[in-house]
Every structure is written in C-alpha cells, then in structure tokens.
Design a binder for these strands. Structure first.
Lengths: 197, 197, 197, 197
DNA sequence: TGTTAATCGAGACGGTACGTCAGGTCTTGCT
DNA sequence: AGCAAGACCTGACGTACCGTCTCGATTAACA
C-alpha cells in the first residue's frame, strides 16, 4: 500500500519538485496541472501520485527543498543593537522577495493551499514558518533583554504585529507593498497608536 | 456581442449568486464548479457565461449581493468614547464571523480569488473593503480628535496594524483565532512594543 | 441520463464509425483505442462514450453502416439453376473477401467481439447475419423445389454445413483458405461423405 | 540475453500457467492481465516476461500443460464399427465441453488469440490441433477401409465438414449448441445435401 | 562445500489508455 | 432576445497495466 521509500528514485523526486516550482511561476497556480509537472519533469504521472497526495503538497515540498538547500543551520536575523533599523532591514528584504516575480506566483500558490488545507498548514507552520518565526522571536527577545521592548510583551503577538500587516497587504492586495510601507509599519508597531506622554 | 442588460432576468441572477454562495460553503472552493452552480440554480450554463467572466467574479457578486441586502447606509463602528473597548468589541465580532462555518469557506474562497486576480482585488477594495475601512478610519479619526491617538498618525497604517494580524492569522492559520488573541493585538497595537516611559 | 438522440450530431457519428473501421484495419484490433478513434475522427472522447457502450459496439455499428450503405433491398444470391456452380461462385467471393487485407482485420475484430459478448452476438445475428443467411436459405429452398436437395432437409443445417468449414478455417487458421478449398467443401457437402449407390 | 532454461524454476512455471487458466475463467479474457497472473501465481512480473513473449502464449502453454497431463499416448477415437454412432458420441462430448463454463472462457480466449496471431496459430495446430485431427482422420480412414466412406474422399475436408459447423456455431454464437444440433450435422455430412436416389 | 552467477519476489519507473468530470462554445426550441 | 437544456471538443483527472529496470534474497551448478 504505502510505497517503500528506500526504493525511491531521488532524481525523479528532485525533477518533480523543480518542475512544479518552475511551472507555477510560468503558468500560475490555476493552470498548474499534475500532467504538466510530470511532463516537464520527464516522469510518469503515477510517480507523482505514488509519493504525493495532492498538488499542494508537491508545491509545499518544492519550497521545503529550496529552504533546505541553505546551510541547514538555524536562521538568524541581524542584530546591530538598533532594533528599529534591523527590523526595517529585514522587512524591506521580505517586501522585495514578495515583489519578486520569481517568487510571487509560487508563494501565492502556497499561501492559497494553506488557506484551504489545514493539514498542509500545520506542516507549513512546523517546517517553514516556525524556524523563521523563532529567529524573529529571538531578535525581539534580544531587544527585550536590552530594555528596548516592554518586559511582559508576548513575542508572538509582537511578531504578528510587525509582519501581519505586510503579509496581509501582499496577499489581499489592499495597497502597494513598498519599502516605505514596511518602515511605517515598524515605526507604528514599536511606538503604538496612542500618543507617547 | 455584449448582451443587453435590460433583458436580463433578475430571478436567474439571484439564483446563481445564492447557489454559488451556498455551494462553496458545502463543497469547498476547490470543488465549486460552474456546472454545479448552474444545476443548483436551475439555470443554463450559458446564462452564467453570458453575465460573468469567471467563477471568482460570480462569488464576488454573491458577496456584493449579501452586503447590499443591508440598509444601504454607510457602515458605522460603535463609538462609546472608550477606543480600546470599542475596538475589542468589533474585532471580537470579526473573529466570530471568521470562525463561523457558514462564512469561513466562502470568505476563504473570495480571499483566494483576490490573491490571484488583481482586477478582482481592485473591485473588492472599491466595493467591499473600502466602505468598511472608511468606517474603521472614522472611528480612529474620532479617537484622534479626542487625543487618544497620536496626532500625526497615518490612519491606514493604524487600521492595518489592528486588523492585519487577525486576518493573517485566519488566512494563514498561524495559530488559533480567538477573542483573546484579538484583545492582545488591540492592546499591543495601541501601546506599542517599546516600553512606555 | 440517457442522452437525447434528436440532438445527436450525425457528422460525428459517421466520423467515429469510419475512423474505427479504418483504424482497426491499420493497427489491428489489439491496438485499437477509443482515444485513437476519437482523435482520428476529430471528436471528443466523451462523444464516443455518450453514444456507445464499448469499443466492440462501435466496430459493430461501423459494419452496420457499411452494410446499410447498400441499396437497402434484401440480399439475393445468384440462381442459374446450377446449384453447385452458384454455391462455388458465392463461396469463392466470400473467400476472396476474407483474404482481402482491407476486410481481414476488421472482420476478425468483429468476430472476436462476438465470441466474447453474447449481447453483441445477438445484434450481429439480427442485423448482419440473418439477412445474409436468409438469402442463403432462399437459394437452397429454390434448389430444394427443383428437386436438387433432399426434401426433408433442415436448411439451417445445410447453410452451416457449407459455410461453417470455410469460416472456421479462416478464423482458426487451420489451413490455407483457397478457392479450391471452397469448391471441395461444396462438393463434399452436396454429395455427403458416404459413398453414393 | 536468452535465459538459461536449466535454471528455470518449475514451480513458478506451473503456478503461472495454473493462475492464467484459472483467472481467464474467472474474469474473462478482456480483463486478464500479466499483473493479475503474476499476483495470483505469487510470482514477479519479470518471471513471466522472461519466459513468455505474450499473454496469448502463456494461455497457450496453460492448455498445453493440461493436455500433457494426460497419458501422453496418441489420442484414439472410439471405433465400434458404427461410424455415425461413434461420431455422434464424440461430437456430443465436444459440445458438452464447449458448453462447460470451466472451459468456455479459456477456450474462447485461446481461439481469439489464434484468430489474431498467426504464429501462435501455427503452434496450436502443431501441438494441440494436429494430434486430435489425426485421431479424427484415423477414425474416418478406418470407416473408409470398411467401405462406409467414399473411396477418394479427402479426409481433411471430411473432418472440417463434421467439426467446422459445430465450432463455428460455438464461436460465432449463431445458435444454441446442443447435442441434437451435433447429431443433425453428422447426419447431413454423411448423407450429403443432395437427395440419395 | 563453499563460490558465484542466474533466477527469483517485489515493486518503482516512464508510459499509454482508460473512463469521468468540467470547461467554455454552440445549437435547439420554448417563453 | 433571453433562457434551460444539453451536445460538442478539449483537456485534466486519478487509476490500471504495460514492459523495463533495479534491488536484495534465494538457489543451483561449478570449483
């Protein structure tokens, strides 16, 4: 029933994931088909159905492969001591990536799948989101130790407050996603909406 | 070529939109089909293709029909003078709606369409998001006048700071979407992450 | 459920049947596919599945179309008064047709389907075999009236005795199917195996 | 390239042939697959592809195995001196076997393969048909010697005249295949169609 | 009697065709 | 003219088998 993973051909696996990532970028998620992936990868359809339960999971694995092609060590955000500057730097990079046509389509596709598939969302959280989120939390924790953040602050809320607006603007297209917008969000999040003294 | 709108049968239009909204809720967005909508609505497929360019637009129109079934006047958020309490109240209602199984699937479907279709996103902004956003801005403007918000504050950024995290958590399923979470977000947004004095 | 025959497109029907007949002749029955027929006919697969339950029935209908393209009147075998000569003439024509590469493959295919599908066999008997068999019986009946055949003879048995060996040799390839063979069969059938007087 | 027959595992060979024969009887020829045979026989697919060139040959070998499980001596038809009675006896047994559900499907399958594969047909003639045909010829030769058959008679034609109609009726389903039919065929073949003085 | 090479079971692989579903277009007859 | 109905061509779905190809694990002839 469940196929034997030791017999799996690694070359086919990589070909499928690469083809999926490339195709979604070329034709968009709506026109991404299993047949298309198989053809591009030079692989039989059954090889995809044997190892992946759905199109979304293929795409997810493609992202996973990309992320694992890094050094493998934990992600670390820059820490110059200047929290605001560091956050703006990171968020600007995020904005740039989200605006990069090479990543825009694939990431929207993944986001869509997560929206509709709770199981996939859990895998995403565990393998892709959580490592990055831990890095974000760590940077904020460092600032907290330095007295730059409120002592009792819930760091997960803080992460959401900074990154949530940016991701939401990107996904929902509520407005142009610019570096300037990122900076304003950081400022507002750090200072709060209420007047200071 | 372009059909004559005066000949359009209103009953068919309503039947299609109702069927689309009901179906997406029952079978999910992935399995929502034009044929299914037509069959449920007791309508020929051509009637759908004649009046709507795509499945997403049908769904969007369905939301539009629902929103217009209100009184038609501008939306107004509660204003008791206590900004924090008012925001928490509104956000809790939002959370409840997002968690309501009757609206969850349809709204995720709409969000997905917006993610992938810039034109539809523009229509969404104009007809559904902007009226609501204006109400939010208005409530904040009132608070600003009362000195409860920083004078130079960009109200659009403020709206994003409050609603962005909630919407993002819902769409991306980064964690449970609870009333408590909403309250924490409001508090953090108002106070900011940096320590106060 | 059952499609409405009045809406059926006659052009598609003819294209499918022609394509099926041509293809089976070119690639053989084993490699005859619904997809191939559809492609050759310039027709969607669904159009075939809508109107025909199986590959075999398509082929049968193709034969039916060919047979109906004749004058429509009942078949008549030659009757010169010389029974033996007439039978040899007809049987030689049959042998020639069975050896004709244009008909060999398609007819073997039909025979195979009949072998495995009782329902199809019944349709074959009624629409293709029976008209021809009636003509054969009629020729024998004429001979019987002329005193050239035994008075109590079962004409169906007689038909089988003459045509059965030929068809069997063709289908089972028990030996070369020649005009000479046909003549010997006719002679043996007319005279019988036992010595005369 | 060509596998070494001395290494061949006899148990696997028998398992494959038995499985093939049983399966064709259970699921019919159309649904008989190499994978199915291999699974039923508890054998790898390659073992089948190594030793047999095609599905038809497997089936043919299965029949060969069955026929060789007899005593191995030449087949002999009963010879009581009464040719007509002996032929009717033998033909009735044939009819019974052809009507036996245990042999019907497998034999139709083999017949089909022979119809479409000339090479297999040659093997069939040599190993299965010819021994039986020789026995038939021998019985007729004996009758000929006894003056019960015409002296110059071609015995192969005679065999075809007697068995051809029966086999044809079975394969082509031109009518019910009964003992009575067999008897009528024998009578007609012996006496001939023409009136006897 | 241990060595070694072919056969074996298992099953992944690149393919082809299956029979079904839905997309979007077109035609027919009714309102 | 708009409409319900639905046939049509197209293309993708997910499945079943094809025939080829590895993989250890026997297993039988030879050293």
């Amino acid at each position: 029933m469940t196929p034997n993973p030791t017999r799996r051909r690694e070359a086919s696996r990589r070909a499928v994931l690469t083809a999926a990532f490339d195709l979604v970028q070329e034709v968009g998620y709506a026109k991404l088909t299993i047949e298309g992936i198989a053809a591009r990868a030079g692989v039989g359809k059954q090889t995809i159905y044997r190892w992946w339960p759905s199109k979304g999971v293929v795409l997810f694995d493609a992202f996973l492969m990309l992320s694992e092609s890094g050094d493998g060590g934990p992600v670390v955000l820059p820490d110059t001591g200047d929290l605001r500057a560091d956050l703006i730097l990171v968020l600007r990079a995020t904005v740039e990536e989200l605006n990069d046509p090479r990543y825009d389509q694939p990431m929207r596709a993944l986001a869509t799948e997560i929206t509709h598939d709770a199981e996939l969302a859990a895998a995403y959280r565990e393998h892709l989101d959580e490592p990055m989120r831990e890095a974000k939390r760590e940077r904020l924790r460092s600032a907290q130790r330095a007295g730059q953040l409120a002592p009792g602050l819930d760091l997960d809320i803080a992460v959401d407050l900074i990154w949530g607006p940016v991701l939401n603007r990107w996904l929902q297209r509520t407005g142009p996603l610019t570096a300037d917008y990122a900076e304003r969000v950081v400022t507002a999040a750090l200072d709060g909406l209420r007047p200071r003294s």
